[in-house]
Design a protein around this nucleic acid. Structure first.
Lengths: 207, 207
DNA sequence: AGTTTGTCGAGACGGAGCGTCTCGACAAGA
DNA sequence: TCTTGTCGAGACGCTCCGTCTCGACAAACT
């Protein structure tokens, strides 16, 4: 992870003036607003700097490029400081997974969040280093929540004992993501429920 | 489709000099090479023009932006002129789907094709108009092949009769795409087969 | 044969953003 | 007090943007 050293999470050296947290917050907040309004392609470091009332160098000092900046901006805005609480567990796996996916789709319905996340995704696809950072800081933690919920289902006998949990996560969640990125396919609550049901029961239908 | 009128498929007016097909081919070929080498973000119209030995205006006359150019470049190179023959049908659905997906993964293994397709995908995510063009000209035709194969499986009783075919396509193919775009997850032949098996038999495992 | 219409390579143009660099002001540790 | 690093501001040379104009040329129509 070559980034880290220059990224905002780098630890302070012993001496010298300390980094201003308010400046960092202003930059990330503005970056989110800009990508939410203009998209990633038309986002400009100069625009963010001007709009945040900040020197360009202050951004370049802490973030190596647009992608890293947008990743931090999205992470800061969407996750916030709190712990990312567990997935719901009502006992009914199909209901719980459907609820999670419906909530995700509802977030996509907010144009600002939609554009911001599209921008981040576009950046990630082309930049292996950024995609690794995304995986470690956003995707893997979320994935862990999903695996945990599925493991409980497995222990309750609602999921086959020999099923690989990573396979299960992909089978359940990837179709929704695909319909979102390509803007085609049914993302209504019914459509989402059908995906969950299909993944759980299978298409062959021997049941 | 507002593009069309300015896109290379537009029909010729009655009089005047005709468009040079060799020029079109040179531009698209060079565009593919450039995106395959540098990626989408660093692809430049000026670079394509210079490298193809062509005036900038000649590109701007026929393509409205980078995205449209790259879409045509990928379409031209990956599909070629021929009809996109049917999916294999050996009678064993799981084997056939696995073979198709393994072939797809093998294409991703070619760095040039990988970068070109990543570039196209990145462009599509941010541009609704381009994503529609992609859907109509590449995704939907492929999807149709998949639906046809699945319908035959349905008639043979290997797929539940009440299963929606678009749901089936997403469930089977989206996980592989996800693992590719995010560069994480098992894309080995075994991993791919597990996806197909999981989608067909279901995770709940009542069989 | 001549005219019209559109294509083509070449490159000039003003403008936007790039990423680097330097400046003076300032704040925190030594 | 002195050193070290942060900060806003903006100048710098550069690349690329998208538009425009030019002269050469080819296809269709008169």
């Amino acid at each position: 992870m070559r980034y880290r050293a220059r990224m905002p999470t780098a630890q302070q050296p012993s001496t010298g003036r300390r980094r201003n947290p308010a400046t960092r917050a202003a930059i990330l907040g503005t970056a989110f607003d800009v990508v939410a309004e203009l998209g990633y392609a038309r986002l400009t470091i100069e625009k963010v700097a001007a709009q945040a009332g900040v020197g360009k160098q202050t951004i370049y000092r802490w973030w190596p490029n647009k992608g890293a900046l947008v990743l931090d901006a999205v992470l800061e805005r969407s996750l916030g400081p709190g712990e990312p609480g567990d997935l719901p567990d009502s006992g009914d796996l199909e209901d719980d997974l459907t609820a999670v996916l419906v909530a995700t789709v509802e977030e996509f319905a907010d144009p600002a969040f939609d554009r911001a996340l599209r921008g981040l995704t576009a950046a990630i696809i082309e930049d292996p280093e950024l995609s690794q950072a995304y995986r470690e800081r956003l995707d893997e933690p979320m994935r862990d929540l999903k695996r945990r919920r599925l493991r409980r289902a497995q222990e309750a006998g609602q999921l086959a004992a020999d099923v690989d949990l990573d396979l299960a996560v992909d089978l359940i969640f990837a179709p929704v993501t695909r319909r979102w990125t390509e803007r085609s396919g049914d993302l209504s609550p019914d459509g989402v429920r059908a995906i969950v049901r299909g993944a759980l029961r299978g298409l062959a239908g021997s049941a």
